[in-house]
Amino acid sequence: MRWRETAVPLAIFLALAAAPFLGFGQGHSLTLLARAMIFGMAAISLSLIVGGAGLISLGHAAMLGVGAYAVVVLDHARITEAWMVIPIAIAASAAFAAVTGAIAIRTSGVHFIMITLAFGQMAFFATSSLAIYGGDDGYTLYSRTELFGSRALEGRLFFHFTCLALLILCWGLVQALLLSRFGRVLRAISENETRARAVGFEPYRYRLVAYAIAGAIGGLAGVLLANGTEFVAPAYLTWQRSGDLLFMVILGGTAGPHGALMGALAFILIEEWLAHLTEHWRLIFGPLLILCVYFLRGGIAGLPRRG
């Protein structure tokens, strides 16, 4: 059923492209959509670890956090040019993922969850203690990232389409990755590690590279997150945020990036919708997610297959 893996995301991308012109062009709607797209990217990157490498990470918010704090550090040094900021942020988050992954990936199962959680918490406390960047209170950017000196990203519509373009890029990248030689090995390892070893693959290397790539994409999402709110705080790195990301991936289905994309959009939109209905929305949201996961074993992506 390969067509669904591309048809559904393409429909979503089209809808996101059309949304600003179909009554979702006001500030609030665009902020919400940008948030959905940014978490879509983050969830797609996490899906590479969860679905691709078969590892459950509870520390993925730290990848976004490193990307976002790279923007902060550079902003503080008055470096705001995108062609500096984006590569540095991506390199920083990829490096963070590579170093923490090098340790975490030696374990698996519950131990992997605990180690990624621990690294996530370390990153959280590290940012909280950065007094120069506001500590717990966070840091307000002097300006959004600039494109060749232009302030184009401050335009709401331009930002919307920047997020969309990068979301499509990340989705395409992960999709291509999973279908490549590398992706085949990754899929084999996550489904039957012994078999992969028996034909000659060392799972560690492939998982580590996947982890670093996921970190890089997470860092890019972090850059957008920082730009969307023009504010960065340690709250971006909480383990609850990591849990939300994991939830998006599982809610959407771990079969591929299309699942993560759907999961992230559903998560953000349901959250928003419930928050409108009642101030006690969290009481409903939790059980609702549990029901979704319980009844949709393949996630949202697995839904039409049953019907």
């Binding site: 291509a176 490549s180 030689r181 590398f182 085949r184 090995v185 492939y206 590279v209």
Partner: peptide
């Protein structure tokens, strides 16, 4: 050959 090839569809 190497399996660290990321873009070409292996199929």
């Amino acid at each position: 050959g190497s399996s660290f090839r990321f873009f070409r569809p292996v199929g």
